[in-house]
Design a protein around this nucleic acid. Structure first.
Length: 978
RNA sequence: GCCCAGAUGGCGGAAUUGGUAGACGCGUCAGACUCAAAAUCUGGUAUCUUCACGGAUGUGCAGGUUCGAUUCCUGUUCUGGGCACCA
């Protein structure tokens, strides 16, 4: 009886399906455990072997927790809105809903192949109106809330209105705003004025922001679609354009997002990334008087974390896109400024930050140092971004590297305020220097001077203490079709929320996915839809136009973990009872690429829902495990680019492809003799094709490196026959220049796994060849789940062999059943319990690769002991269930068990079976291990010294000398210091 | 440019708290079984050196702390991820 994995896997997948083995109930006496995978986008390319890595890890953990007696929620669904589906629609005319559903069906089939324990009854899809109804509903909660700074929480906007009615704009607990009014004035405002003010406080609000505008395509492009400043498609120029946008006021939650990190188990690096993204800093805002030609700009406000360096300011830098630049420029500098502005407009933020080349222009205006009246030139440069701080900095070259380079480049004189700490060559950002050339700060330690200056600024009324955040409010709209419509109607320039009873506001079908006028989304082209709420009642009258932006990709994924708890609820996004039962996600598995996007947004949404009383916890994920990325290992062939001299009138199309094996290609490029030799070879090939054309000769050998499908390469050796059939026979007539041993060897490189690089490996093929159990275990065996590594299919045989070896402990091909009911002996029990301990520990700490090794060791040892005892094997099967559920269930049932192994109880480790009384200690002399001595575990230091000093090897190394010290660490090692 | 991570045999990796570097698997070499092959089994396999016993070197690179460093510290190189409209 052999291991027929295909039959076994099919049989049990069907069985589990029929018996609803993975159905999870919200009612259970067991403790709950919630395991979640990051929401997948159902891409048209389907799954490659990199995708299931995290799913297998979470599946193992879910099954493990189930064996440990938990009620485990492990759902799966689809983040189905997104750009690729829309792009596909533009190119192929297929409705995104149709292509998305096809992708989902394919995705699902691929997942099912691998045998996951998802409860598919709970599947969600963000593009389903029954789902996005609640995304819109939550948006309305954000729209109808403001952040009460005093309470540090979101509250209904009606509270704010009540405060305004009582106290006007001086109401306590609200953020500073440009609006200033009394309670009476507030009451007298018309609705439009009131709404305008409220918009400044809403957690979801409207503002203006810059987008990548491509005039030629008439559309707004994602950052992804802009490469080197031009559109990816067509290479058209891209400039920045201001458009009305929706935003989420995530900055109000900056401190809560920081504080929450202390209460959740994310890796330190992940917390660091989020902390850095939020970028909290403290310093001061300082107003400088401005002297400019036309005098329209009176002052310039800068933000600095180092007010102590105020006397080291040698120039100012203003973000070029700020409006004041226009008013500050002098007549003489106007042309240079305008040219520079045009340049900056074509630059993306990323390019500006990454730019090493220093650029900038003097505006012709000066700022006045408020303490000593010194005139400071005001420059503009792309390295200062409008979005951070006030968009203007005071540059202190002796203390800041960027400022220093800028000053050196433009020959701006540098004031040294830190004495010997500055060497004239490199800036020094120290806070430990004693200040010089600093007026009233002279002689003061810099770190002390910070406070002194801030106090002085506030006293003189020219500056304030200021906490700043690098994080900006999150842009929350897209000029696209395939996303959630906003439940907003515009009337006379005012945005009004739709009534909850009108949700969902469904996405209309469109004929064309091209953008509307002025960069608006495609919805703007459907007048019928935009006007469909004309009878809608707003407080300022009837009618209005629907918002034509749609929500971004992260809208639906910011709360999906809550919907899984109560996916069919038609009354609420998730009942409080369900969210109280499941609570936080206990284990969240996904890649680090979401470190600062999704993981911050969903944390914010959770906090808002918590503040408003809809859920009982304010952090969505208790523990996060980051899976590494599986990279592709690409293979290359080296193709000749024909270069022929002679008469030009020959038929190019007759030329065949010539492919050099890697070694030959290298040789040709590095060795002139080889080059000559292969020219002759090529000339012979040429003769074969053009027997009548002796005048044609190969001029030079140029070789291009071409990706080849990794699936037709065995290791590095190309399967030439398969290659000839590849790409519809493109290389059918190719000539191959092989290595001496007759092989064609490919080049290789580790790159991102992607279809275009022909380095994707499809899990379906591997499951078909080796089975899901082998595939699952092999993915885990590759290495730690958190680490990125290249995929290599080679080792999968080893894991498959392991499962066959396991099978042979139960059934022999010749003898049939070998398992028996004999009583286990001490050696066998020791193997089992060593295994229990290690599997339990390794699984708990997500060290799945070492767990697989442990299974291998156990099976090897049991094979050596010729142990086929049910007493031992049965326990082993339970432990193996999370990793290889199909074979475990099959053998479990063959052992005569009636219930499913999925519901067995994880074996209990017992110390007494593994207890040792002695240990073979490594003995080192001066830290170098020289021998090994076996000692009892309860031995004393004196006894150790006595025994060790009699050892022959030790005596040889001591060479008659007395050891200075004998270090004995119980259960570890012995070291003699000479 | 900024933030984060990683680097160990021919390859993937192990070493959980500073204590025998290379578990386990792949590959490879030798052997057994076989008419042969596959499958399976047994043994070897970091590098250099030695007939051998053994010795020396060795965890990206350069330093440091320690009786002892893959592990801690400082600097550095390369590779990967993110940088606000891919998801």
């Amino acid at each position: 009886m052999e291991y027929k994995f295909r039959e076994i896997e099919k049989k049990w997948q069907q069985h589990w399906n029929q018996t609803n083995a993975y159905k999870v109930s919200n009612e259970s006496s067991k403790p709950k455990f919630y395991v979640l995978d990051m929401f997948p986008y159902p891409s048209g390319a389907g799954l490659h072997v990199g995708h299931p890595l995290g799913y297998i890890a979470s599946d193992i953990f879910s099954r493990f927790k189930r064996l440990k007696g938990y009620n485990v929620l492990h759902p799966m669904g689809y983040d189905a809105f997104g750009l690729p589906a829309e792009q596909y629609a533009i190119e192929h005319g297929v409705h995104p809903a149709v292509s998305t559903d096809a992708n989902i069906a394919n995705f699902r089939k691929q997942l099912d192949n691998i045998g996951f324990c998802f409860d598919w009854d709970r599947q969600v899809k963000t593009s389903d109106p029954q789902y996005y109804k609640w995304t819109q509903w939550i948006f309305l909660q954000l729209f109808n809330s403001f952040f009460n700074r005093q309470m540090q929480k979101a509250e209904p906007i009606s509270n704010l209105i009540a405060s305004f009615e009582k106290e006007g704009s001086s109401a306590s607990g609200i953020k500073p705003s440009a609006f200033s009014f009394t309670a009476d004035e507030w009451k007298a405002f018309d609705d439009a004025a009131k709404q305008n003010i409220l918009m400044d406080y809403r957690l979801a609000f409207c503002g203006y922001g810059e987008v990548n505008w491509c005039e030629a395509l008439g559309t707004v492009l994602a950052n992804d679609e802009v490469v080197n400043g031009v559109s990816e498609r067509g290479g058209h120029p891209v400039v920045k354009k201001k458009l009305r946008q929706w935003y989420l006021r995530i900055t109000e939650y900056a401190d809560r997002l920081l504080e929450g990190l202390e209460r959740i188990e994310f890796s330190d690096s992940m917390k660091e990334m989020q902390t850095n993204w939020i970028g909290k800093s403290s310093g001061a805002e300082i107003d400088f008087d401005v002297k400019s030609e036309n005098g329209t700009v009176k002052s310039l406000r800068v933000y600095t974390t180092r007010p102590d360096t105020i006397f080291g300011v040698d120039f100012m830098v203003v973000a070029p896109e700020l409006d004041i630049v226009e008013d500050m420029k002098s007549a003489e500098q106007a042309t240079a400024v305008d040219e520079y502005l045009a340049y900056v407009k074509s630059r993306s933020e990323r390019e500006r930050m990454a730019e090493k080349r220093i650029s900038g222009v003097f505006t012709g205006a000066y700022a006045i140092n408020p303490f000593n009246g010194q005139e400071i030139p005001i420059w503009i440069s792309e390295y200062v971004l409008a979005g951070y701080g006030t968009g203007a900095i005071m540059a202190v070259p002796c203390g800041d590297e960027r400022d220093h380079k800028f000053a050196k480049h433009f020959n701006i004189p540098i004031t040294n305020i830190i004495g010997k700490y500055y060497d004239g060559e490199e800036a020094n950002a120290t806070k430990d220097a004693i200040l010089e050339n600093s007026d009233f700060l002279n002689g003061m330690l810099m770190r002390d001077a910070i406070e002194v200056v801030i106090n002085k600024l506030e006293e003189k009324g020219i500056g304030i203490r200021k906490t700043n955040y690098k994080m900006r409010d999150a842009a929350f709209s897209r000029q696209r079709y395939w996303g959630e419509p906003f439940p907003i109607v515009w009337k006379d320039g005012v945005a009004y929320a739709l009534d909850e009873k009108d949700l969902p506001l469904t996405l209309p079908d469109v004929e064309s996915y091209s953008p509307g006028p002025e960069g608006e989304g495609p919805l703007a082209n459907i007048g019928e839809w935009v006007n469909s709420y004309t009878s809608y009642k707003t407080p300022s009258g009837d009618g209005g136009l629907l918002e034509t932006n749609t929500m971004p990709g992260y809208a639906g994924s910011s709360w999906y973990f809550l919907r899984y708890m109560d996916p069919h609820n038609t009354e609420e996004f998730c009942s409080r009872k369900a969210s109280d039962y499941w609570g936080q996600v206990d284990l969240y598995i996904g890649g680090t690429e979401h470190a600062v996007g999704h993981l911050l947004y969903s944390r914010m949404w959770t906090k808002v829902l918590f503040d408003l009383g809809y859920i009982g916890h304010d952090e969505p994920y208790r523990k996060l495990v980051n899976q590494g990325m599986i990279q592709g290992s690409s293979r290359f062939v080296y193709r000749l680019m024909w270069s022929i001299s002679g008469s030009a009138d020959f038929d190019n199309s007759k030329l065949c492809s010539v492919l050099f094996s890697k070694g030959i290609a290298n040789e040709i490029q590095t060795d002139s003799d080889a080059n000559k030799k292969y020219k002759n070879v090529l000339n012979e090939i040429l003769r074969k094709i053009y027997s009548d054309r002796k005048d044609l000769v190969v001029r030079e050998i140029n070789i291009s490196q071409v990706h080849v499908d990794v699936n037709i390469v065995d290791g590095y050796e190309l399967d030439i026959e398969a290659f000839k059939k590849w790409r519809n026979g493109e290389y059918e007539d190719a000539e191959f220049i092989l290595e001496e041993d007759g092989k064609y060897i490919c080049g290789s490189e580790v790159e991102k796994m992607s279809k275009s690089k022909f380095n994707t490996v499809n899990p379906d093929d591997l499951v078909n060849k080796y089975g899901a159990d082998t595939f699952r275990m092999y993915e885990m065996f590759l290495g730690p789940v958190e680490i990125s590594k290249p995929w290599d299919t080679k080792g999968i045989e080893g894991v498959h062999r392991f499962l066959k070896k396991l099978w042979r402990l139960f059934y022999d091909e010749v003898k049939g059943q070998v398992w028996n009911d004999e009583k286990a002996n001490d050696a066998e029990l020791k193997v089992l319990h060593k295994c229990i301990k290690k599997i339990e520990d390794d699984t708990e700490r997500f060290s799945f690769n070492t767990a697989v090794s442990t299974f291998m060791i156990a099976v090897n040892e049991l094979s050596d002991l010729k142990c086929s005892k049910k007493e031992i094997l049965e326990q082993l099967l339970i432990m193996l269930t999370p990793y290889a559920p199909h074979v475990s269930e099959e053998l479990w049932s063959l052992l005569g068990n009636s219930g499913s192994v999925l519901d067995a109880t994880f074996p209990k480790f017992e110390e007494k079976y593994v207890k040792e009384s002695a240990k073979a200690y490594p003995v080192a002399i001066n830290g170098k291990t020289r021998t090994e001595i076996t000692l009892a575990l309860d031995i004393t230091q004196q006894e150790v010294e006595a025994i060790v000093l009699k050892d022959e090897v030790v005596l040889k190394w001591l060479d008659g000398k007395q050891p200075k010290k004998v270090i004995y660490v119980k259960n570890k090692m012995i070291n003699l210091v000479v």
